[in-house]
Design a binder for these strands. Sequence first.
DNA 1: AGTACATGAATGAATAGTCATTCATGTACT
DNA 2: AGTACATGAATGACTATTCATTCATGTACT
Lengths: 199, 199
Amino acid sequence: MVVVNKHTKIISAATKVFAKKGFFTARISDIAKEAKVADGTIYIYFNNKYDILLSIFEEEIGKIFAKTEKLLSEEQDPSRMLQIYVSQYLQAMKKNKYLGEVIQIELRQTNKVIRNYRKNKFSAYTNIISDIIRKGQDQGIYRPDILPDVAKRAFFGALDEVSGVWNISLETHYSVEEITEQILSLFLQGVLLDTDQVK
Amino acid sequence: MVVVNKHTKIISAATKVFAKKGFFTARISDIAKEAKVADGTIYIYFNNKYDILLSIFEEEIGKIFAKTEKLLSEEQDPSRMLQIYVSQYLQAMKKNKYLGEVIQIELRQTNKVIRNYRKNKFSAYTNIISDIIRKGQDQGIYRPDILPDVAKRAFFGALDEVSGVWNISLETHYSVEEITEQILSLFLQGVLLDTDQVK
DNA sequence: AGTACATGAATGAATAGTCATTCATGTACT
DNA sequence: AGTACATGAATGACTATTCATTCATGTACT
């Protein structure tokens, strides 16, 4: 049997439980049971319930963020940069089905103080998008009338919502590549077949 | 002084409090205080805390849904239909700043049973989008390679996330028309200036 | 038109249940 | 035999919900 350290075990149990029940409805004892440890053990590794959520968020988003930044630094073409962004995010979400839900929880459920804290951490991640768009506008390949800060939200919102597809349809199995392609081409070209049709 | 009935007063107080503190952190006494009624009064009008949230959701989404459906029934062009959809949603969200947050809460925070319930109600609303896309594909004006069910999510996710713009920037005042235009043109045409640039 | 009675909306203090957190005790390893 | 980690029952704080009581308003009778 593979032995995993307790910190990791608790993190992954909590991710699962939070995703299933939501942060507030999840009980510490649920997490403890899922992780096969005693309730008290959790407090050896984490300060409190919220600390567990924060740790999941930090550690996982941190990983994605770091990897994305690294890959982006080696790239110059805005559209390829966006592709990297999308595929990294979706890949991470597909790998850990529960993570997407937990991120959404973290983004909405927590109180104002905390919200401000994560805002800094998290907006750095979404600001990557607006930076790429500005870059594309500077290079003259992206429409200058697009507002990068609005587009950033639209883009991340789309990504966030789409990252849940893996969890619904039991029959259809989309691949990360497929969804990446859809999102990207939607965002780059739009749904219209022929651009001339726009009034 | 304008006298409003208590049901309405509680609904609007609760919308405000839920948006500010989140469903679980919000106390009944907070809502009561905001509505200037006694705690017990709330239970004359609602069965329990969750019933308040559900009522907000039902009533408000219901209004938007009904109005959108009505307007759409008089329209045939898919792109104009999408425009109606977007502008109706954003208009409603701008009118009631707190509503957007509450909808997001409702969409994420509640337990599985309830989630399934709202899924039916709510997915009817988002399915409007995929229906419009299919219509556009049938008419031969939308790209046939777009997956309507994926695009639906992307589109609504974008809309949902963008609907929060009013709440952040204190300096910038975007109009509903402006944001509608951005989202729509992003979705229809994409960010690329020249479609030929796509590999 | 004044008095007595009825109604039920509104109140908010008291209750009751839920859980996060603690800590006294146990276990295992060196 | 000391150290570090682990346990889970007990504690106590927090709040949703209840319900006995109040009181403003309406009705009917003289």
